[in-house]
Simulated assay, not measured.
Amino acid sequence: MQDTLNIPLTPELRSAIDRLTEAEGLSPEGLVQKALQEFVFVHQFRSLREQLLQKSQADYTDDDIFEMVS
């Protein structure tokens, strides 16, 4: 089941979305969904990286953590 979220957009943000949807060949909904998915992935990646660094004496690189979450 899909859920809907209504958010207000400034005119500047709406213009940027319109330009990106045309350039990327996506619908506005598809573009925003992709952006949110990428944001959530990055947030989870950073959170996991921080947890691993706290539990370990070894330093993990971003590439190491990317391999773990991929």
Score class of each variant (00 low, 15 high):
residue 8 P to Q: 07
residue 56 S to H: 09
residue 24 E to I: 04
residue 58 A to P: 02
residue 68 M to H: 00
residue 58 A to V: 09
residue 42 V to F: 06
residue 52 L to H: 00
residue 29 E to V: 11
residue 56 S to Y: 02
residue 56 S to P: 07
residue 58 A to L: 13
residue 26 L to H: 10
residue 28 P to N: 02
residue 53 L to M: 13
residue 14 R to V: 00
residue 6 N to G: 03
residue 22 E to N: 13
residue 56 S to M: 02
residue 3 D to T: 15
residue 69 V to K: 12
residue 51 Q to S: 15
residue 49 R to V: 02
residue 10 T to V: 02
residue 23 A to D: 08
residue 70 S to V: 09
residue 48 L to R: 08
residue 61 T to E: 03
residue 2 Q to K: 12
residue 31 L to K: 03
residue 60 Y to S: 09
residue 32 V to H: 01
residue 55 K to L: 07
residue 24 E to T: 09
residue 66 F to L: 12
residue 62 D to N: 12
residue 29 E to H: 09
residue 34 K to E: 15
residue 37 Q to E: 14
residue 61 T to G: 01
residue 68 M to V: 12
residue 69 V to W: 09
residue 4 T to L: 11
residue 21 T to P: 03
residue 57 Q to I: 04
residue 12 E to K: 11
residue 34 K to N: 04
residue 3 D to E: 12
residue 58 A to T: 07
residue 13 L to H: 06
residue 66 F to M: 15
residue 21 T to Y: 10
residue 17 I to S: 03
residue 7 I to C: 06
residue 10 T to R: 04
residue 37 Q to W: 08
residue 32 V to I: 12
residue 59 D to H: 13
residue 65 I to T: 05
residue 25 G to W: 05
residue 9 L to Q: 07
residue 29 E to K: 11
residue 47 S to I: 04
residue 2 Q to D: 02
residue 9 L to P: 07
residue 51 Q to F: 08
residue 32 V to D: 01
residue 2 Q to N: 05
residue 63 D to H: 09
residue 53 L to P: 01
residue 63 D to W: 10
residue 39 F to S: 15
residue 2 Q to E: 13
residue 60 Y to Q: 04
residue 31 L to A: 00
residue 54 Q to G: 02
residue 38 E to A: 14
residue 66 F to A: 15
residue 1 M to F: 07
residue 10 T to K: 05
residue 8 P to A: 08
residue 42 V to G: 02
residue 64 D to N: 00
residue 61 T to W: 03
residue 41 F to Q: 07
residue 11 P to K: 11
residue 14 R to A: 14
residue 49 R to H: 05
residue 51 Q to E: 15
residue 52 L to S: 05
residue 63 D to R: 12
residue 70 S to A: 10
residue 21 T to M: 13
residue 41 F to H: 02
residue 63 D to L: 13
residue 32 V to M: 07
residue 57 Q to C: 05
residue 10 T to D: 03
residue 34 K to H: 10
residue 19 R to A: 15
residue 59 D to Y: 13
residue 54 Q to M: 10
residue 47 S to R: 10
residue 53 L to Q: 05
